[in-house]
């Protein structure tokens, strides 16, 4: 499977190992089944965009991948580590999986610098000087090194989300989860966040992105996955999705959103 887009270089994903394995995953909220028998394999360096109407379970699914939600049945394996009640496994997984939220969820009482260095210093026991250097490097990468000493409330939405991405990257994760990263942003700020994500994709990060940004999906994704009512309805390349979707529900969703 190779993509023909200009932004992502042709990569030989076939030879890569599966870094995420989900088998028959179920998730219930009381009587409501949020995930119904989801199985999926994602390869290292793959960029997967998850689509679906609200309430379809797409956010719930990626939140299961770092156990912000606990799955009720099935099996999830991240980079060879089984997701179970073992706290050591959970900590190992969480330090390999970074997450970016719709509402940014920056820590408002900490400066931008401390937001980013908190994880490395407290979890990885990195010395302060090293953590600060790493944070500055990441702020350069997301394009806002001059904001290091400000507080989140002093930044625009787009800047906050870029800090949130830097915060997640500071743990040097192998996988990045994005839960509707641009949905809470003003239109003029969406591009600056997508640009950072695109750069990240080019660098070879494994990414799972829940989004409604079809331009991003078309250009950057290796694979699109469509969720509806807790089930995985259809998956395929962007080309397949935008030119030749098979399922009725997919067609309906795409016709509404495009």
């Amino acid at each position: 499977m190779t993509t023909e887009t200009a932004s992502t270089p042709a990569r030989d994903l076939e030879s890569m190992d599966d870094i995420i394995i989900a088998e028959n995953v179920d998730k219930w909220f009381g009587d409501f089944q949020a995930l119904d028998d989801i199985s999926m394999r994602i390869k290292e360096h793959e960029i997967v965009v998850v689509l679906g109407p609200s309430g379809s379970g797409k956010s719930t699914f990626i939140r299961c991948l770092n156990r912000l939600e606990e799955h009720d049945a099935g099996r999830i394996v991240i980079d060879g580590i089984e997701m179970n009640d073992d706290v050591r496994n959970l900590n190992a997984i969480r330090s390999e999986v970074g997450m970016v939220f719709q509402q940014f969820n920056l820590f408002p009482h900490l400066s931008v610098m401390n937001n980013i260095t908190l994880g490395p210093r407290k979890v990885r026991r990195m010395p302060k000087l090293d953590a600060d250097a790493l944070a500055m490097q990441l702020l350069e990468r997301v394009g806002i090194p001059e904001q290091a000493d400000k507080y989140p409330a002093q930044l625009s939405g787009g800047q906050q989300q870029r800090v949130a991405i830097a915060r997640a990257l500071a743990m040097q994760p192998k996988i990045m989860l994005f839960d509707e990263p641009t949905s809470a942003l003003d239109p003029e700020m969406i591009k600056e966040v997508l640009d950072v994500m695109q750069e990240l994709a080019r660098s070879g990060m494994t990414m799972i992105v829940v989004t409604h940004e079809m331009g991003f999906a078309r250009e950057v994704a290796d694979r699109l996955i469509f969720f509806d009512e807790g089930s995985l309805v259809e998956e395929g390349t962007p080309q397949h999705f935008f030119e030749n979707p098979q399922e009725e529900r997919t067609k309906l969703f795409l016709s509404q959103i495009l």
Binding site: N66, L68, V87, N91, R94, S95, V97, G98, M99, F101, Q103, N105, L106, F107, P108, H109, L118, G119, K122, V123, R124, R167, A168, A170, M171
Partner: peptide, 26 residues
């Protein structure tokens, strides 16, 4: 907001660290 402790867990802090460093100060 619940997102605060979620974000704390997402960067790898354990329950105690999340309380001590993120939730309680606020």
């Amino acid at each position: 907001p619940h997102g605060q402790s979620e974000a704390a867990h997402a960067v790898g802090l354990n329950q105690f660290q999340s309380m001590q460093l993120i939730v309680m100060p606020q």
